[in-house]
Design a protein around this nucleic acid. Structure first.
Length: 426
RNA sequence: GUGGGUAUAGCUCAGUUGGUUAGAGCGCCAGGUUGUGGCCCUGGAGGUCCCCGGUUCGAACCCGGAUAUCCACCCCA
C-alpha cells in the first residue's frame, strides 16, 4: 500500500459500494414497519448543546461524559455529538410543542449516527447508527406492548424472530425502586466480604450490577438476592403483569430477566432488550424502556414516554451471521461499446447513451478506449443484461446487433429507434 | 483505561533451523490472428515484508519500542 496521508479514524467505517445495497434493503424493511405501525419520521442534528446529554444525575453522569465527543465551538458553546437518540427527540418534541396535538405522538428516527468514545470491538464502534422509535403520552401497558411489537415485527420481517431473545424486566417506579434498592443493598452488605472487588466497590453506586457480574461467587450471591420483579408496588406489578399478558396474547416469546438494568434515573417500569449470541460479546441488538421521568427532566410538563434504539450495525452483523441473502441490486441494463476510436463513433455513443438514460434505461458506455474483446469482458463483469458494439459498420448500416449477455445470441435493433426498440425487449 | 492475538501484493494468505532475484490463489492489464464476454492457456504490472531501533557477516523471520487493527475486559445512555 502506498503511504497514505491519513487513515479512517479509529472506530469508524466506510460503507463501500458493494455493501450499500444491504443498508438500502434494511432501510426499506424498517420503513415498511414504521409505516404499518403509523410512526412518523423525525430528524435531529448530529450535535446538540452538551447540557442535553448531561441531564442524568449521580454517578452515571461522569461515566457518560467520559465517552462523549464534547468540544467548544467558535462561539464558546459546549457542543456534544449525540451519543444516543432519545434525548434529542424529546428536545425536539418539547421545542416544537409536538405534544400539543393529539396524543400519543409516535415518532421514529432512522440511520441516526451516534458517537461514543469507546474501545472498539465486535459490534461496537465510535460512530454507529441507530433506528429507534419513541412514543409519548400513553402510559398504558398496551403502549409498552406496541413498542415491543415494533421491535419484534422488525426482526420477524428479517427472519430473525428465532435468532433473538426478548428479555423483559420492570425496574419499577421511583417509589418501589427506592424500597427495592435498600433491600438489595442490605442483602449485599450481608455478603460484603465474599463479593468481588468490583461488586464491592459499586455496591452502593450501582448495586444491580451484581446480577451480571462474571464472578462465580458473585453469581451465587446474586442468585438468592431479592429481585426487582418480586418487589414492585401494586401499580407497577399490575402494569408489568398486563404487559406480559399482552405479549403472550400476541405470541411474542420472552423471558423475564430481573438483571436488565438502566443506568439513568428517569427510567420507569418496563425495560427490555432483544439479544443474540451470534455476533460476539455485544449481543444487544435492540434495547428500550419507559422513561416517564425524562420529559420533566428536560423542562417539559409531565408526559410519559417509551421507546427503543436498535443498532443498525449489529442488526447487519446478526443478519450476516444468520446467512441472510440480501436481494441483489439490478445490474446495468446495457453496455455500449466502441468498435473503433473515431470521432463519429464516439459522438454517436454519447448521444445514444444519453437517449437511453432519458428513456429510463441504465447504460454504461466505453470510457477507456479498450479493445472490443476487453470491452466485452468488462460488460460481462458488470453483469450487464445486454451489450452492443458500435462502429463505422453499424453507423453505415443504421442497425446494431444487441448481444444477450445472460444467455446466448441476441437481436438486431435499428439505431434510429434504439431506445424504444430496446425497451420492448426488457 | 486494561489484557491477549495479528500486521508480507488490490484481496485472502504461504514463507524452512536467520542465508542469494520474497511466493501462491483470486483480482487487475495484455495476448491466444482480422470487430464480441463467460471456460481454458500464456505473459505482464504490482511489495519500504506496518514504522523506528537493536542483535548478527547477514533479518520478513530473533529482541525492544511505537503505531494500527481484531477480540475480550471495563462500560453500555
Amino acid at each position: 500500500m502506498a503511504q497514505l496521508l491519513t487513515r479512517i479514524p479509529k472506530g469508524t467505517r466506510d460503507v463501500l459500494p458493494d455493501e450499500v445495497y444491504k443498508w438500502d434493503y434494511i432501510e426499506s424493511v424498517i420503513r415498511s414497519v414504521c409505516r404499518d405501525f403509523n410512526y412518523r419520521e423525525i430528524r435531529t442534528p448530529v450535535f446538540e448543546h452538551t447540557e442535553l446529554f448531561e441531564r442524568g444525575v449521580g454517578d452515571a453522569t461522569d461515566i457518560v461524559q467520559k465517552e462523549m465527543y464534547t468540544f467548544e465551538d467558535k462561539g464558546g458553546r459546549s457542543i456534544t455529538l449525540r451519543p444516543e437518540g432519545t434525548s434529542p427527540v424529546v428536545r425536539a418534541l418539547l421545542q416544537n410543542s409536538l405534544y400539543a396535538g393529539a396524543l400519543p405522538v409516535k415518532l421514529f428516527y432512522y440511520n441516526l449516527s451516534c458517537y461514543r468514545y469507546e474501545q472498539p470491538q465486535a459490534g461496537r464502534l465510535r460512530e454507529f447508527h441507530q433506528f429507534g422509535v419513541e412514543q409519548f403520552g400513553a402510559g398504558s401497558a398496551a403502549a409498552d406492548a406496541e413498542i415491543i411489537m415494533i421491535g419484534y415485527e422488525t426482526f420477524r420481517r428479517f427472519g430473525l424472530a428465532d435468532t433473538l431473545t426478548l428479555r423483559l424486566n420492570s425496574i419499577g417506579c421511583p417509589n418501589c425502586r427506592k424500597t427495592y434498592r435498600e433491600k438489595l443493598v442490605a442483602y449485599l452488605e450481608g455478603h460484603k466480604s465474599e463479593l468481588c472487588p468490583t461488586c464491592k466497590e459499586r455496591m452502593y453506586r450501582n448495586p444491580m450490577r451484581v446480577f451480571d457480574c462474571k464472578s462465580e461467587i458473585c453469581q451465587g450471591i446474586a442468585k438468592d438476592a431479592p429481585f426487582v420483579t418480586d418487589n414492585l408496588c401494586d401499580d407497577c406489578a399490575a402494569h408489568f403483569a398486563a404487559l406480559q399478558e399482552s405479549l403472550k396474547a400476541l405470541g411474542i416469546p420472552f423471558v423475564v430477566d430481573p438483571t436488565i438494568v438502566r443506568g439513568l434515573d428517569y427510567y420507569r417500569g418496563t425495560v427490555f432488550e432483544f439479544v443474540t449470541s451470534t455476533i460476539g460479546a455485544q449481543g444487544t441488538v435492540c434495547g428500550g424502556g419507559r422513561y416517564d421521568g425524562l420529559i420533566e427532566e428536560l423542562g417539559g410538563d409531565a408526559l410519559s414516554g417509551i421507546g427503543f434504539g436498535l443498532g443498525l450495525e449489529r442488526l447487519l452483523l446478526t443478519l450476516e451471521a444468520a446467512g441472510f441473502k440480501f436481494p441483489a441490486p439490478a445490474p446495468v441494463t446495457i453496455y455500449l461499446g466502441a468498435a473503433s476510436d473515431d470521432g463519429a463513433t464516439d459522438v454517436f455513443l454519447t448521444k445514444l447513451a444519453s437517449e437511453l438514460r432519458a428513456a429510463g434505461v441504465s447504460v454504461e458506455r466505453d470510457l477507456m478506449g479498450r479493445s472490443v474483446k476487453a470491452q466485452m469482458k468488462y460488460a460481462d463483469k458488470l453483469g450487464a443484461r445486454y451489450a452492443a458494439i458500435i462502429g463505422p459498420d453499424e453507423l453505415a448500416k443504421g442497425a446494431v446487433q444487441v448481444r444477450d449477455m445472460q444467455g446466448e445470441g441476441g437481436f438486431e435493433l435499428a439505431l434510429d429507434n434504439f431506445a424504444a426498440g430496446l425497451k420492448e425487449c426488457l
